[in-house]
């Protein structure tokens, strides 16, 4: 009787054991290991010796001008880039619904916008790298149109160039979410508003946008998370350069840990970077809660 009971209690644990083991081995243990490492100075290419430095690594990261400016770039890149993606995506979605009536044409246009998103990040990055060289196709077209060529990969512009490529590729996601949100708004509300004599602008402000708030917030969150961990295009298009002009925290982190092999310092940096993400999410959810 008792054995029967204890077996009943244990069964669920056996069932969830395999994923548990996996999570402990590949997620939780490495995280804890990273905390342990972050309190040490350790370069495995020089010696297996780890020197305990306490919170020294953390203090150094917070004082590291290179890290802070990478963080600044990240906020510029994410803030401006994601905002543009969101505004542009929403505008295009609303325009599609407003001006394209035939379902077939709508699908066609949507698919066209979605195509870049289907492309692997690395492929898109490689393609654009070729397009934006100083004598690349884009500049050739500009010259042909009578403009002067643009130094897309120059120090001042490089990060913005990557941002534009990212906008080209990822505007489709907020577009798709905004489109779905827009077509889920009952027509009756619009007809009601028209009968009330509301102008198009008022209808946009009072019905469309309030109604799309939550889906758009989710689109923002998805894109922000993606751009927070963004690495691929930087890696392929500029490798952080020229100088450190396109160095985002993820790239600097990668360099620190896996090129310079300052493993303890890198671990501390990744924890700080992670905590910033948690704080950002916390504020985001507070905002989202207040909105709904």
């Amino acid at each position: 009787m008792l054995r029967e009971k204890s077996r009943k209690i244990k069964t669920p644990y056996y069932l969830i054991m395999p994923p548990q083991v996996l999570i402990w081995v590949v997620v939780i243990f490495p995280l804890l290991w990273a905390i342990y490492i972050s309190f040490h100075d350790w370069n495995p290419t020089i010696s297996p010796q780890r020197t305990f430095v306490g919170i020294g690594n953390y203090l150094n990261v917070l004082r590291d001008a290179r890290f802070l400016s990478a963080l600044g770039r990240m906020f510029y890149y994410s803030g401006v880039g994601v905002t543009i993606q969101l505004v542009l995506g929403t505008a295009i979605a609303l325009a599609i619904v407003e001006y394209i009536r035939s379902p077939r044409w709508r699908t066609t246009v949507l698919v066209l916008f979605l195509l870049p998103m289907m492309m692997a990040e690395a492929v898109a990055a490689q393609m654009w790298t070729l397009l934006i060289t100083d004598t690349g196709t884009i500049n050739n077209i500009l010259v042909w149109l009578g403009f002067s060529p643009v130094g897309w990969r120059a120090k001042e512009l490089a990060l913005t160039t990557i941002m534009i490529v990212d906008i080209w590729q990822w505007t489709a996601l907020p577009l798709l979410i905004a489109y779905a949100a827009r077509i889920s708004i009952p027509d009756g509300l619009y007809e009601s508003a028209r009968l009330d004599g509301a102008s198009k602008w008022l209808i946009l402000r009072k019905i469309t946008l309030p109604y799309m708030r939550v889906p758009l917030a989710i689109a923002f969150l998805l894109r922000f998370m993606d751009s927070y961990k963004f690495l691929d295009k930087v890696f392929i298009m500029t490798y952080g350069g020229p100088g450190t002009a396109t160095e985002l925290p993820t790239f600097y982190l990668y360099q620190t840990a896996f090129s310079y092999f300052k493993v303890g310092y890198g671990a501390a940096m990744s924890w700080i970077f992670g905590i910033i993400a948690v704080i950002a999410m916390f504020f985001f959810w507070r905002l989202a809660k207040r909105m709904s």
Partner: peptide, 30 residues
């Protein structure tokens, strides 16, 4: 917009994100 006609729809078409007051007030706000 220009006919000044009122219509009550079968499913009422109330604005779910506004209070009852704002719903009733919406034609006057417009």
């Amino acid at each position: 917009q220009k006919r000044n006609v009122a219509m009550v729809f079968q499913d009422f078409a109330l604005y779910p994100h506004m209070t009852v007051f704002e719903n009733i007030a919406s034609p006057l706000r417009a």
